[in-house]
Amino acid sequence: MLGTAAPATRWLLVEHPGGWAPAALDSPGIDDAVADRLHRTALSVGGRVVLVRRPGRAAVPAAARPRRWTVLDLDGRRQEGTWHRSDDLLAADAALLHGPDDSAAGDLPGPLFLVCTHGRHDVCCAVRGRPVAQALAVRWPQQTWECTHIGGDRFAANLLVVPDGTVYGGLDAARAVDVVQSHLSGSVDLEHLRGFSAHRPPVQAALAAVLRAHGPAAVGDVTPGEVVAHGGRWRVEVLGRGGLPARSEVTVRRTSQPAARLTCSASADATAYVWTAEVIDPAG
């Protein structure tokens, strides 16, 4: 799974308790023009738009209450608002484009845990994701949300932690609670780690390799330095803190798996990349 987190450094979370279309922004209540604008803005800033709803949701009429939106940056900055009509999301689009306005920030209860349950995108995400979302909601009710597609359906159930952007996969209800508790305690769970969405796939694999060799450690204890590409290989400098080496060099290689049916909804076989990383030696 390593190196498979979809890159993003800014997230727009839009509360949408109704049904989700296969393509999230095509969902009822979001005008085509607004959806297109949000999509283009996200692409321009390296961000993602994710629809969210509470686990175990009841049917809520669209006009019953304002729905929330939140823009989160990797550095923890945030901005929140509400919307009744699709046009109200233009304020969210501005925050997504320019970054959160700290003066408008609300109080978040801590990291948010987004579990993909997007069944109309891939049924495996709903079948495997909903029990995980329910289990996390029992322990962290204010921080847990179901969400639309975040990539890697074949690794369901998938969990995205924001704002730090860590992605875990292959979870079940029991293991998910342990993984989140470990994450909050400052120890990345390497068995279920897919990667860190702040970085490109080869860098994700290199950071994970250092954590595996010298951890346990937290997400923020490893950062990339110089990255040099040579065809299908990369040399990645990893800077560590705490109990990790101050500097490590990692070689990363990309190979392709044999074609296979990768997801529940796949109509044909496809190939996928595999990232392997080896720590050469710590230095510095």
Rank of each mutant, 00 (worst) to 15 (best):
S197F: 04
S197E: 06
A198E: 06
H199E: 02
H199K: 01
H199R: 06
P202S: 03
V203T: 08
V203Q: 04
Q204A: 04
Q204W: 03
Q204C: 02
A205M: 02
A205R: 02
A206R: 04
L207N: 07
L207V: 03
A208I: 04
A209Q: 07
V210T: 06
V210G: 05
V210N: 06
L211M: 12
R212Q: 14
A213Y: 09
A213H: 12
H214I: 07
H214S: 14
H214T: 13
G215W: 12
A217P: 10
A217Y: 09
A217N: 13
A218R: 15
A218V: 14
V219I: 11
G220A: 13
G220F: 11
G220W: 11
D221V: 11
T223V: 15
P224W: 11
E226A: 15
V227A: 02
G231F: 05
G231V: 06
G231M: 00
G231A: 02
G231Y: 05
G231S: 05
G232E: 15
R233G: 06
W234F: 03
W234M: 03
R235D: 01
R235E: 09
V236H: 04
V236N: 02
V236R: 00
E237Q: 15
E237P: 09
V238Y: 06
V238M: 05
L239P: 01
L239N: 09
G240P: 07
G240F: 02
G240Y: 04
R241K: 11
R241Y: 07
G242C: 05
G242I: 11
G242L: 08
G243P: 08
G243H: 14
L244E: 10
L244W: 08
L244Q: 11
L244T: 10
R247M: 12
R247L: 06
R247D: 04
S248C: 12
S248Q: 02
E249G: 12
E249W: 15
E249N: 13
E249A: 11
V250R: 07
V250T: 03
T251P: 06
V252Q: 04
V252G: 00
V252F: 02
R253C: 08
R254W: 07
R254F: 01
T255Q: 11
T255M: 00
T255R: 10
S256W: 15
A259Y: 09
A259R: 13
